[in-house]
Amino acid sequence: MTLELVSASEDDLKDMVAFEMGGELLVVPTRILREVLEPPKLTRVPLAGPYSAGLINVRGVVLPVADLRPLFEMEQKPFDIDTRVLVLELALEEGTMTLGVIAEKVHAVLALDPETIQKVPSVGTRWPQGAIKGIGRWKDGFVNLIDVERIAETYLGAMPTDESLG
């Protein structure tokens, strides 16, 4: 039953990339990882809200970069030598979206044991609704399986909505 949320991506569990933010370890499937970039020059997008870190130029393509730390209520420490941008390709309802996500530090690629995956308690966590698929064990600690597609659609405005900012 623990696997209900992640069963569709059991294969993914064998091949996850872990990165660190706000002292937590987060993982996403390497399947959706396109590349890892040294922090490039970001162009801020005014009025875009706290989750938008800005725009970057990746070989002539302009990509949006998200900063998930405000969403997870983590402190935003300045970029340092370990900071990276993970370029992820997300399959959203509206089509594919290529999105950069800021990572304070990128760790190893790892395999998770499906048996260890647990559902997130619905209350009493720092995680906003739907942002986490589950929590797994790795070595002595926990890793958080984040649902980037869901986050993009729910919190980053990748879903068409009626509300318009401006």
């Binding site: 997008v45 938008s52 725009l55 393509v61 949006p64 998200a66 959203l92 979206m97 990748a158 401006g166």
Partner: peptide, 13 residues
């Protein structure tokens, strides 16, 4: 360059 859905709802750009 078109903006991604993340930013295109900001009509001002």
């Amino acid at each position: 360059k078109q903006l991604s859905p993340m930013h295109s709802r900001l009509n001002v750009f």
